[in-house]
Design a protein around this nucleic acid. Sequence first.
DNA 1: GTGTCGCATCAGCTCTGGCTGATATGACAT
DNA 2: ATGTCATATCAGCCAGAGCTGATGCGACAC
Lengths: 104, 104
Amino acid sequence: MLTSADTDLIRVLGDPLRLRVVSLLAHETLCTTHLVEETGARQTNLSNHLRVLREAGVVETEPCGRYTYYRLRPEVLEGLAGALGELAATARATGAADRRRPCA
Amino acid sequence: MLTSADTDLIRVLGDPLRLRVVSLLAHETLCTTHLVEETGARQTNLSNHLRVLREAGVVETEPCGRYTYYRLRPEVLEGLAGALGELAATARATGAADRRRPCA
DNA sequence: GTGTCGCATCAGCTCTGGCTGATATGACAT
DNA sequence: ATGTCATATCAGCCAGAGCTGATGCGACAC
């Protein structure tokens, strides 16, 4: 079953720049400067998106001097992937059984 | 790797009402009237969302007299679940190896 | 035919959310 | 202490997206 928390998570991931950041962080732990280089986005803009990702629990930070490392939290993505997979399986079963509600 | 098509798909799913509809359709093939009953949303509003889901390829329609059945397309959800799962696996490996880019 | 019902589309309003420049904070170097 | 750099926050602008009422269209019943 999908909760409203999942909706929020999906919404957070549904932004091109944020998804790009997540994609980058999946391969390598980076700090804001690297992300600015990689994405070409302004620092302010990126910082806003990183806050959204942080508050959604998608990433976690590790301060390192005046830099800040951003690391992905795999459990969150795994949870969502699992929920969507379950939903897809249910849908496939429903289709196979052609289970439909009669209209009027 | 996540493409921009995935971004669009995620964005489509990132709406509470649309995700609710997807959730309902996963268990049972329904027509608009049923969805109006189940969600409590206005017919116009729901029809708009259904159009978005249709254009994103998440659902497909089957006319039945003056009714229209909506059915979920499991492959789309499966594809997204798979991509997210892969991303999570990559992130987990990155974390385990503590692979990070040195800052300056 | 007329009426009703299921569904889609249109036009308009509103509000969220992403982008920006400016500014604040805090760490390092000199 | 001064300057520079990395990062976060704030205030404001603007486009996009969701909700609505009104309307159009096609299928069925009579």
